[in-house]
Every structure is written in structure tokens, then in C-alpha cells.
């Protein structure tokens, strides 16, 4: 078995995350889809690290886990703040910066 199934899995996971960001309105689901896309990149880095025998990719994946943690903290704080402002989790309700009212 070559590494191709891993690459297929990475592509599928990234696309599921993209579909979640594009089609859902719930802020929490959008957040988790972004996390899923980041994690699929992590899996790609780990696979490449194993296929090439290169430890640098593992180090990048480890640093990426830290970046994902920072992103989670900020995103959850923003969701809490937005919910407190407007009492809704609908992403369509937050369009103060948009021209289309």
C-alpha cells in the first residue's frame, strides 16, 4: 500500500471542512470546519514526514497544533462575545461591515 489513500483522505477531509464553511450558518459549526481543514493539513504533513523520512515536517505539524490551539481560544472568545451582543448564533445576522443590508 502506497501513501495514496492518505492523500485521498486529506483531500476528502479538507473538502468536508470547505463544505461546512460554505453551507452552514451556525457559528460553532463554521469554527469546527475550519479546525478540520487545519487538521487535514496536519495529517498531510505527518504523511509526508513518514514518506520522505524527513523530521522537519513533523516539527511543522507540532507547531501547527499550537497554532490551532491559539486559533481555538480566539475563535471561541469571539463567538462568546458575538452571542452576548446579539443573542444569536446565526452568521447571517452579523453584517455590520457589509454594504448589503
Amino acid at each position: 500500500m502506497s501513501a495514496d489513500p492518505f492523500f485521498l483522505l486529506v483531500a476528502i477531509l479538507f473538502s468536508i471542512g470547505l463544505i461546512g464553511v460554505a453551507s452552514r450558518k451556525n457559528l460553532f459549526v463554521v469554527y469546527m470546519s475550519i479546525e478540520l481543514m487545519l487538521s487535514s493539513v496536519n495529517l498531510l504533513l505527518a504523511t509526508l514526514s513518514q514518506v520522505l523520512g524527513d523530521a522537519n515536517a513533523s516539527v511543522i505539524a507540532l507547531l501547527l497544533i499550537g497554532v490551532i490551539a491559539a486559533e481555538a481560544a480566539l475563535f471561541l472568545a469571539i463567538i462568546t462575545h458575538l452571542y452576548r451582543e446579539k443573542r444569536t448564533l446565526d452568521s447571517d445576522k452579523f453584517k455590520n461591515l457589509s454594504k448589503v443590508k
Binding site: 483522505l9 477531509l13 468536508i16 463544505i19 461546512g20 453551507s23 459549526v29 469546527m32 470546519s33 478540520l36
Partner: peptide
Amino acid sequence: MVGGSLVMI
């Protein structure tokens, strides 16, 4: 993985 993420979205 795929089932969990499908449930998620």
C-alpha cells in the same frame, strides 16, 4: 474520520 466530520457538518 469521514463519518465524524460528516456528522459534524
